[in-house]
């Protein structure tokens, strides 16, 4: 199962992932139209700065997801490897926000209902990953991501 992988060192803080995410979650899925939509589409990934660095943060789709556990209505639920949110069941209590260790769940504009990453069900590769100009985001299996890190390490070890 592929996941959104983050290579922290490559993020330049351009926020292209944020815009692409909001556009993908608009009705028209097109930038110039999306900015005029009501309600305004909402991003589900956040470029968080820390000192001079920045890092894109989104839902990690946890195995033992606290958000799912605390949700009193079943609005937050697991489907296979993905944690999804059913707006119709959401009562806007905000427990999932409190429970999420990453701040990846946020409110919809002008409402207490929440939104979160759904890994872009209409796309093969999530919009944030496609939009990232520096490959700070990639969509691969954890095995492949770890293998890549090991390969880089090995190459460094055998430098002359």
């Amino acid at each position: 199962m592929k996941e959104v992988q983050i290579d922290v060192g490559r993020c330049v803080g351009c926020k292209s992932c944020e815009i692409a995410c909001a556009v993908e979650h608009s009705a028209g899925k097109e930038l110039f139209g999306a900015i005029f939509e009501e309600p305004q589409p909402r991003k589900r990934i956040f470029v968080q700065h820390a000192g001079e660095k920045s890092v894109p943060v989104n839902c990690r789709h946890c195995e033992e997801a606290f958000c799912v556990r605390v949700c009193p209505t079943g609005a937050m639920y697991r489907q296979g490897a993905i944690v999804l949110h059913n707006r119709n069941l959401c009562i806007g209590c905000g427990f999932c926000e409190l429970a999420c260790p990453f701040g990846a769940i946020t409110r919809s504009p002008g409402s207490k209902l929440v939104t979160k990453c759904d890994l872009c069900p209409d796309r093969e590769i999530p919009a944030c990953v496609s939009a990232c100009p520096t490959n700070a985001l990639s969509f691969t299996t954890p095995e492949e991501a770890q293998r890549k890190k090991r390969r880089t390490l090995a190459e460094q070890m055998f430098l002359p």
Partner: peptide, 26 residues
């Protein structure tokens, strides 16, 4: 994809406090 802020005219590089960007979704 080309930069959304640039496409929408929402990036300012006129001084060195910036660059600054305006969120296009309010």
């Amino acid at each position: 994809p080309q930069c959304g802020f640039g496409l929408l005219g929402l990036c300012c590089r006129h001084c060195n406090m910036g660059p600054c960007r305006i969120d296009p979704f309010g």
